[in-house]
């Protein structure tokens, strides 16, 4: 196997990282209420939509990062271990409460979406 595809992915990931840093910079300097990553996401979407950059220069890097999105969460999720004291007593009861609330959000948002979609007569595909 040649090194070229890996190099391509690496260069594109660096580019995406650059856009992320621009997002962080904008957040700090304009004190926006959104995190830098979301600003970078909106920025990249705008760049693509306005055809200021072609899709192919970020496609391989994006696919690679999205394929391994789970991995990038791990350092933060491991941080839950610092709050073990919280899971004793009343805090423990908040876990099922949060789960039930989350499940309600999941059901209702999807059901309302499907309802409004059917009312506005969108074709399904």
């Amino acid at each position: 196997m040649s090194v070229k595809p890996f190099l391509k992915i690496a260069v594109q990931v660096v580019l995406l990282y650059g856009i992320y840093r621009v997002g962080v910079w904008l957040q700090v300097n304009l004190s926006l209420p959104l995190p830098g990553s979301i600003i970078g996401f909106l920025l990249l979407f705008s760049l693509l939509s306005l055809k200021l950059i072609p899709v192919f220069i970020i496609e391989k890097g994006s696919r690679f990062l999205l394929k391994h999105l789970t991995l990038f969460f791990v350092p933060v999720t491991v941080g839950v271990m610092q709050y073990d004291y919280f899971f004793q007593g009343k805090g423990l009861l908040l876990i099922p409460a949060v789960l039930v609330s989350t499940v309600l959000v999941m059901i209702i948002s999807a059901k309302i979406f499907e309802y409004v979609m059917s009312k506005t007569k969108y074709s399904n595909d």
């Binding site: 995406l16 840093r21 979407f45 899709v55 999205l66 990038f72 933060v76």
Partner: peptide, 23 residues
């Protein structure tokens, strides 16, 4: 976290990359 922070740092560009499927 000190050792794994570069993995955490990649979360930023990964969120940015979500613009690709959206586009």
């Amino acid at each position: 976290m000190d050792g794994a922070q570069w993995i955490d740092e990649l979360l930023g560009p990964a969120v940015v990359a979500l613009a690709f499927p959206l586009y």
